[in-house]
Computed example of a mutant assay.
Amino acid sequence: MLARTVTVEFLEEWITERIADYLEISVDDIEVDENITHYGVDSLARATLGADIEDEFGVEVEPDFFKDRVTIQDIAAGLPQITGEPAAGGREPE
């Protein structure tokens, strides 16, 4: 069950803060349109981020969610069930 609806921009900031915390770097060093592997985000960090999204927003993140989502922008846009906005590519939330 969705606890709240937030903007894509809020979600981008929230994800950026999580990644900065995981990697112990400044949020100022992270660009939302840069491939997150550039910063050292690995499969463990992706799994942790997925679990954090599930815990914080009460939605399920599928195991292959991050496969084609390589930037923070991609990740935030791929969560229409949180933002209430159509998913990238015009798909409706499931």
Rank of each mutant, 00 (worst) to 15 (best):
K67A: 15
P63H: 03
A47L: 13
G50D: 03
G58Q: 01
D55G: 06
P63G: 02
R46L: 14
D42A: 10
R69A: 12
D68H: 08
A47C: 04
E56V: 06
G40H: 00
V59D: 10
E31S: 15
I53R: 09
D68C: 09
F65A: 15
A45C: 12
E62I: 07
I53D: 06
D68F: 15
I53E: 02
D55I: 08
F57C: 14
I36E: 06
Y39L: 03
L49G: 07
D64Y: 15
F66E: 07
A51Q: 04
E31A: 11
E60R: 01
V41Y: 06
I53Y: 03
G58T: 06
S43L: 01
V61I: 12
E34N: 13
V59W: 06
H38V: 03
D64E: 12
D52R: 01
R46M: 13
F57G: 15
K67W: 12
I36R: 06
A45R: 13
A45L: 12
E34G: 05
G40M: 00
F57V: 14
G50P: 08
G50L: 04
P63K: 03
D68S: 10
G58H: 02
E62A: 13
E62Y: 05
A47S: 12
Y39R: 01
Y39G: 01
E54R: 03
E62D: 07
V27N: 11
A45K: 12
D28W: 06
D28L: 10
I36M: 13
Y39T: 00
K67C: 11
I30A: 06
D64C: 02
D68E: 12
E62F: 11
G58E: 10
V41H: 04
